[in-house]
């Protein structure tokens, strides 16, 4: 390289003869085209490559499921974990509540005119069976909360969460956002599920009927 060149100067384009050389100064000064060195490949490296390839074969064999189009688990014995130890309902409830924040918001205040609040709502802090019934089956249509009318759709959670999770989230919302009602036992959810689990979403009237007919 020309790192030791003197300070560059400008040169005026010379007349025809020199001009061709001048134009190609870069092409003339460059090194010859690259050649191949012929160092041998280290044998240890080749052995490593071979071993590594064997690992690849082993990994495919061990993790390819059953090679079918519907064999999605890479190992047939990838058993789901056993039943989890019971959790603190307030912790589990907070986790489940993440699914509710879309509408009822993280602060439990809902969205004015659209999604009812949980904070200070009689439906939350009142009858435990009625709360469980709402959580399990959801709500459809006009609905009054604290004197305000709402018209929206609450999804049914019965296929998504088990009794423990529903009880936990009920317990959580009854004790959060300033609410101060007691916990909901898993057995209550279990009983309500048995009673009305097959029904569709509640209407306001239907829910009142259910609550009244203890």
């Amino acid at each position: 390289m020309q790192s030791d060149q003197p300070k560059p100067e400008h040169r005026r384009a010379p007349e025809m003869q020199d001009r061709i050389l001048e134009l190609h100064a870069a092409a003339m000064r460059e090194m010859s085209d690259p050649r191949d060195g012929m160092r041998p490949t280290p044998v240890a490296f080749l052995i490593c490559c071979l071993l590594f390839t064997m690992w690849g074969g082993y990994y495919i064999g061990a993790n390819a499921g059953d090679w079918t189009g519907d064999g999605l688990a890479e190992q047939a014995n990838r058993a789901p974990a056993g039943p989890a130890a019971p959790q603190n309902p307030m912790v589990l409830g907070a986790e489940v509540y993440n699914a509710c924040t879309q509408c009822h918001q993280a602060d439990g205040k809902g969205l004015a005119g659209q999604f009812p609040p949980l904070a200070g709502s009689e439906f939350v802090t009142g009858d435990e069976r009625r709360l469980a019934a709402i959580l399990l089956n959801g709500i459809n249509g006009d609905f009054h909360v604290n004197g305000q009318i709402y018209n929206s759709q609450m999804p049914a959670w019965k296929d998504v969460y088990n009794d423990e999770e529903i009880a936990a989230v009920a317990t959580y919302i009854r004790a959060s956002f300033g609410n101060k009602a007691g916990p909901v036992a898993k057995t209550i959810v279990e009983a309500v599920r048995k009673q009305v689990g097959a029904a569709g979403a509640w209407s306001e009237a239907g829910l009142a009927e259910f609550a009244a007919g203890k």
Partner: peptide, 21 residues
């Protein structure tokens, strides 16, 4: 990279066998 590195410094590339592999 295979062209420029040896070209600019004017040395042959390390190993033809490794290139092949």
């Amino acid at each position: 990279a295979y062209y420029l590195i040896p070209k600019v410094i004017g040395k042959p590339v390390h190993s033809y066998h490794l290139s092949l592999l």
